[in-house]
Amino acid sequence: MITVLVADDHPLFRKGLRALLGSMPGVSLAGEATDGKAAVELALSLKPQLVLMDLHMPGGDGLTAIRRLAALPDGPHILVVTMFEDDDSVFAALRAGARGYVLKDTDDEEMTRAILAVGHGEAIFSAAIASRIVAFFAGRPPAEPFPGLTSSERNVLQLMSRGLTNDVIAGELSLSAKTVRNYVSNVFSKLHVASRAEAIARARDAGI
């Protein structure tokens, strides 16, 4: 029996996963979490074999949770189930310790295959994700991290990842404190994060 913990902040998506898991012989739902912090706490208490993890959730991001769970002795296998298919998200999740990565619009047949594969310790990726991984290892030059950021926003993120405060960043870049705050807000929005710590974690995962 594969026991599964679902970590996702969208009730309707969790409902769909509940229905799918309920239709799968040899699979049972152990519990549900709505953020990364709760996912870690539930995984420690319920000890599921598999965690279906969204990457971006308010109150605790999935990447941090993946890193914590992957570091546990005999920790659960982790299958990322998310809307994000950009290179930054994919490779950050793999570096953190995920064994699989599928998109939320994956059909039931493919999702079932992914759940069973990762639940049994295999690695699996949806077609769109697999093509990115193949291209990467075929030697394609890596895409610049976070292409949606402007050069100024990227500079601010780089200084944030070094642990500098907004006031210090303003001095480093000869900008006003208000301008830096605006850039920080833009970075949060474009990276789909809710806190400075999450932005820094994503920047470091991307090698910034």
Results as ranks from 00 to 15, higher is better:
A93E: 03
R18Y: 06
R18D: 11
P76V: 01
L12S: 06
D108S: 09
P58D: 03
L17S: 04
Q49D: 13
D108Y: 04
T112N: 10
R14W: 00
L21D: 05
E41Q: 14
V180P: 06
A143Y: 04
G100K: 03
P145N: 12
D205M: 09
A177Y: 13
P142Y: 07
D8N: 08
I200Y: 12
A98G: 05
I2M: 13
S131A: 14
P11E: 10
F137Q: 12
A177V: 13
P48S: 07
G22M: 07
G75K: 04
G26Q: 14
F125E: 02
T150I: 14
F84P: 01
G22V: 02
E153S: 11
G171E: 15
A39N: 04
L159W: 11
G171M: 15
I133W: 01
L55M: 10
M24N: 11
F13N: 07
A194G: 09
S152F: 14
F146Y: 09
E85P: 03
T82K: 01
A117W: 01
L159R: 14
I208V: 13
A130E: 13
V80P: 02
D167N: 10
G119S: 08
N155F: 10
I208G: 13
K190G: 11
V118D: 07
E85A: 00
L20E: 08
V27C: 11
S161V: 01
A128V: 09
R113L: 09
V40W: 03
V184G: 13
